[in-house]
């Protein structure tokens, strides 16, 4: 790791002032950034430590729940309000990483984590995300973990987060601070698809700071589930994961939310599948139909064709758990 300057500006405004210069990176938990720096994937000149900023709170708002960007993953996963209002988020968080890492990782940092694609991590390999124009090592390489939705000729990496899949399903909103004040964007629009610029993971500008997320109140708490299929029982990234949330009333599904992890460059919302469930009974048959709808447009590569079967099976399974019809 090369030497860098380390600063801890006093206020949020000072942070915003400090991050304008190129080569500057914000550090919060550091669980991904320090790893990337050790491997030489990123080599900032200056680290801006923001851990002391007052962005840790988890507080109810008029129509939702606000979670500060610096709230720790472990704290959020066990927070009483989160457990009561959005148990899906807790499940998703607990499915990720390890207890130690969750004690370090923050909500904002989790959103900013980079793909775990081996070709991205390995500085001797081609990777358009790490070094635009060098090609995609995974396209013709070992792409077992890679995308089946929304990939481009430039990049077939997936976003590794579990938390983000939960937040995408729950219609969360991201609150971003910049020089001109705050802006809010839907969580599903925070991350982006690779297209011709896989080096850019999301729509956060260089001089902006995530200050929190807000989850609108909903009726999903009773019927939600996070299913993560992975190569070992814990401490592994998802082959496929599914966040499923249902609002069931009078034996019928009033609303449905579905998002997947491990399948795309961003948390992948399954809007058409959600729509197909509205007004239907929560049955395995209906779930299977929804799962098939969700797979439209999927495209596999040499080593990840199994995801074309695993993904719909997992969607259906997650819905069964959410509906309590296992």
């Amino acid at each position: 790791m090369k030497q860098f300057q380390y600063i801890r500006p006093a206020t949020q405004q000072n942070v915003l002032d400090a991050i304008t210069k190129s080569g500057t990176k914000i550090i919060a938990g550091g669980t991904n950034l320090v790893d990337l720096m050790k491997r030489g994937v990123t080599a900032p000149d200056k680290l801006v430590d923001i851990n002391h900023l007052p962005l840790k709170g988890i507080t109810p708002t008029k129509s939702g729940l606000h979670i500060g960007a610096l709230a720790l993953n472990s704290v959020v996963s066990e927070n009483a309000l989160v457990l009561q209002k959005h148990p899906l988020l807790s499940l998703a968080l607990k499915a990720g990483a390890s207890p130690q890492l969750r004690n370090m990782a923050t909500v904002g940092g989790n959103m900013m984590q980079r793909t775990r694609c081996t070709y991205f991590y390995d500085t001797t390999m081609p990777c358009n995300k790490r070094e635009p124009g060098t090609g995609c090592g995974a396209m013709e390489g070992y792409n077992r973990m890679h995308a089946i939705f929304g990939a481009s000729q430039q990049c077939i990496a997936v976003h590794p987060s579990d938390m983000c899949v939960g937040l995408a399903a729950l219609d969360a909103v991201v609150i971003i601070a910049g020089k001109k004040g705050e802006r809010r964007i839907p969580f599903v629009d925070f991350h982006r698809l690779p297209e011709d610029h896989p080096e850019t993971d999301n729509h956060l500008a260089k001089d902006e700071l995530i200050v929190g997320v807000e989850i609108p109140d909903n009726n999903f708490a009773k019927n939600s589930y996070y299913l993560k299929v992975r190569d070992r029982q814990s401490y592994a990234f998802a082959l496929v994961s599914v966040a499923a949330a249902l609002d069931i009333s009078g034996g019928l599904i009033k609303q449905a939310r579905l998002a997947m992890g491990g399948v795309a460059h961003k948390p992948w919302r399954l809007y058409d599948a959600e729509k197909s469930l509205v007004g239907k009974a929560p049955t395995e048959e209906n779930f299977k139909v929804a799962a098939q709808i969700a797979m439209q447009g999927a495209k596999a590569y040499e080593y990840n064709a199994f995801k074309l079967k695993l993904a719909p099976a997992s969607i259906s399974e997650a819905l069964k758990h959410a509906a309590g019809v296992v």
Partner: peptide
Amino acid sequence: VNANLGDYHVATHA
């Protein structure tokens, strides 16, 4: 392509 303990999966407690 998996020369690390995150991608080469040895058994965990779970």
